[in-house]
């Protein structure tokens, strides 16, 4: 049993044939970096598309207090995203998305702590911090699910005949602003949410592998480090989505 582990270890050392790893990084870590670079291009393209479409629409130039939703101009995000679960009818602009941001940053911190524990061969530590990271990711996904359902379910609008009805956002129309506003919301936060989801799944696989002792046999916890890179990237993208979609 122990012999198998030794063989794997030897193979790893010859992965780069020359015996020395280029850029002092392992093959897997380097490829993860290049994958993340390509993923960064994808997200940049999406966010820049948001910029392009936003700049091609008129901006609202009145005061924030008198703002009303209209498809004539781009909405002010803090007027759109102001709902918090269990606090129905209260205007709490950006509070919920702020909580989501803190959750994701914290899960990134616990991921660093998992990587640090892995470097010390501390299985208990890796298990503990990976579990916190998974929990953070799941909480974030839950928050996003609520935000989407609220966005789709919509806001109460009183029609010309005095009858109130709900109008929600879809890909072709929304009560907040130009149709593209909601379409971009679904695309950008959806694509990010899918990354969070896949990150949670991969985190869970790594947590399981650490738990059954695969990395201990292998002699190192580099997989935790690689998955950590992916998870930090997801956090990094959210930092940009938060600024460009919700703040500006």
């Amino acid at each position: 049993m122990a012999g198998t582990a030794v063989v794997i270890e030897e193979n790893n050392q010859h992965v780069w044939s020359g015996g020395v790893a280029p850029m002092k990084a392992s093959y897997g870590k380097l490829m993860m970096w290049f994958f993340l670079l390509s993923d960064a291009f994808t997200f940049s393209a999406l966010l820049i598309t948001y910029g392009l479409i936003r700049f091609s629409h008129p901006a609202y130039d009145g005061s924030v207090e008198n703002f009303v939703f209209s498809s004539e101009y781009w909405p002010i995000p803090e007027k759109v995203f102001e709902a918090v679960p269990f606090l129905h009818g209260m205007e709490l602009p950006l509070v919920f998305v702020g909580i989501m941001t803190f959750i994701l940053i914290l899960s990134s911190v616990t991921m660093v702590l998992a990587v640090e524990a892995g470097a010390r061969m501390d299985r208990k530590g890796v298990e503990k911090w990976m579990l916190w990271t998974i929990l953070g990711g799941l909480t974030f996904l839950g928050c996003q699910a609520w935000e989407w359902s609220h966005f789709i379910h919509g806001v109460e609008i009183t029609g010309k005949d005095g009858v109130a009805f709900f109008q929600g956002a879809g890909l072709t129309s929304n009560p907040y602003g130009p149709p593209n506003f909601a379409a971009l919301f679904f695309f950008i936060t959806g694509f990010h949410g899918f990354h969070v989801f896949s990150g949670v799944v991969i985190n869970f696989i790594i947590f399981y592998q650490a738990m059954v002792g695969i990395f201990e046999q292998r002699g190192h916890y580099e997989m935790v480090e690689k998955v950590g890179l992916y998870w930090h990237f997801v956090d990094l993208v959210w930092v940009f989505v938060f600024t460009f979609f919700y703040l500006i």
Binding site: T49, G51, L52, R54, F55, S56
Partner: peptide
Amino acid sequence: MIYQGNAIY
């Protein structure tokens, strides 16, 4: 792209 957006506007 920002330049292009302004041009479309």
